[in-house]
Design a protein around this nucleic acid. Structure first.
Lengths: 127, 127
DNA sequence: ACTAATAATAGTAATTATTACTGATAAGGA
DNA sequence: TCCTTATCAGTAATAATTACTATTATTAGT
């Protein structure tokens, strides 16, 4: 809604925090973790900024089991979700880019991005 | 939780209804539509059965903008989401199967399914 | 067909996740 | 430094989903 985006310590902290971890936290996890260094950070602020950051493409978001997860790593990659333990693992390969290119050709319209969730049983749970 | 699954008119109606439409309704849409023929159907029943049906693979589910959508068409396909008008369109092509096969080879573990969401601007909105 | 066991339901209450609101704070251009 | 207003903290409100409970319905066994 605002015409200009101003800097804020809170948004900076949220982005830095997300980029500094390798998992896929939900909004309340980000909130809980950041409260340790920013004791009066507000949950609404976390939501507002995660929305803003994903809107501008600075973080990724996706939903697993009805719960939103955020990812500070924006290099194209897919996610594996273990149906047994619930783990969310990164899959860094060319699939993302391949599918995007294929879809652009096939659909002949603007494609901003592709989200791929792979469901299965992780190696740890397969033993 | 139950050890055996019993037949129920409600679950049958929900499944039949979903298979009879080509869009991707949310739980409350299914509820609203089915209430016309089953006036005392409960919303909780819709949720419980949609969970059961997606769990057994009889319907697909995916989340767009934090809202869950269900799909009675379980032939492998992807979904296109228009960032402008919010439309959800089916993409029937080989991508789904290709990606699944690729992931199985790459990850060397059981892959039950793949969910692909393509974000962009639909043809109608591109004019 | 009758009966017993229990899965499933309707209706409602409770929970969870997310957004909206409000007065105070602070970024940043003039 | 001053002014405009984006952003904030704190809290209230909303939306989506699940949990609970007494009742109903399915189904296996007689």
């Amino acid at each position: 809604m605002p015409v200009v985006r101003r800097y804020s310590r809170q948004r900076e902290a949220i982005l830095t925090h997300l980029k500094g971890r390798c998992d896929h936290p939900s909004a309340d996890q980000v909130y809980a973790d950041l409260r340790e260094t920013l004791p009066n950070l507000s949950l609404g602020t976390v939501y507002r900024n995660l929305n803003a950051l994903s809107g501008s493409g600075d973080v990724l978001r996706f939903t697993v089991n009805g719960k939103e997860h955020f990812d500070g790593n924006i290099t194209p990659h897919s996610h594996f979700i273990c149906l047994n333990c619930g783990a969310i693992l990164d899959i860094f390969d060319a699939t993302q880019n391949k599918v995007k290119a294929q879809m652009e050709k096939e659909l002949d319209c603007f494609v901003s991005g592709v989200q791929i969730l792979v469901y299965g049983k992780c190696n740890a749970c397969s033993k």
